Simulated assay, not measured.
Amino acid sequence: MTKLKPVKNLLIGGPSTGKSTVLEALSDMGYWCFPEVSREVTLEARQLGIEHLFLDEPLKFSEMLLKGRIKQFEKAEILNTHQVFIDRGIPDVTAYMDHFNEDYPNEFVKANRNYRYDHVFLFPVWNEIYTQDNERFEDLELARNLQDALIKTYEDLDYKLIEVPKSRIHDRIEFILNTIKSR
């Protein structure tokens, strides 16, 4: 009997749009979920004495993110489950780098093409739930600009973005689950 590859469902959007909250709820429901790796990278850098790795060394930060997201993708490929949910994807790295006019090696572009997600759910910026914290340096205007960069990057890679409605967590999860059932 041939093992099917898990369906990789990606959650994207600007900062503080509810992705992680929905991901945690999906995990609580028993789905296999991969959390955002940027907080882990940021905390690791702080332990090394680098307060804002993305601002101080954007290429190093992005290389670490890319490596972490590729590792998540590869692990998702071999899981024994039908659906996998991932908070932020490989193309997010180049979207951010492009937004901040930072150069990056061609391996980033190759990764965008070589690692493809099955569904991409866009969590739009939502003023009412937006918050900043120690790991989130972006203000609301920057969050909107980053969302635009993400949309452009994913659409340029021929992804069909599925916009998640601004509603209660339960409704957002129901929307996502109903969407993947119908595809």
Rank of each mutant, 00 (worst) to 15 (best):
V93N: 13
T81M: 00
M1L: 10
V37Q: 11
E44D: 12
C33G: 07
H119W: 00
D148Y: 02
L65H: 01
K110E: 15
Q83R: 08
G89Q: 06
G18S: 03
F123T: 00
H52L: 06
I173H: 01
I162A: 01
L157T: 05
S20W: 04
G89F: 07
M29L: 15
L140A: 13
G49W: 08
I173M: 12
N114C: 02
A95G: 10
H82Y: 08
E24N: 13
V109T: 14
P58S: 02
S27C: 11
L122W: 00
N112L: 04
L59N: 04
F34P: 07
N127A: 13
L177T: 14
L23A: 14
K181I: 00
Q147G: 10
K5P: 02
D103S: 14
R46M: 11
L140T: 03
L48K: 15
L26C: 03
V37R: 07
R39L: 07
L122Y: 02
G14D: 05
R168W: 11
E24S: 10
L150P: 02
Y159D: 10
G89S: 07
K19V: 08
E163G: 08
N114Q: 13
D118C: 03
D28S: 14
L150Y: 09
E74Y: 04
L59I: 12
R168F: 14
F137M: 09
H82E: 15
R88T: 10
L53I: 15
A111M: 04
S38A: 15
V84T: 14
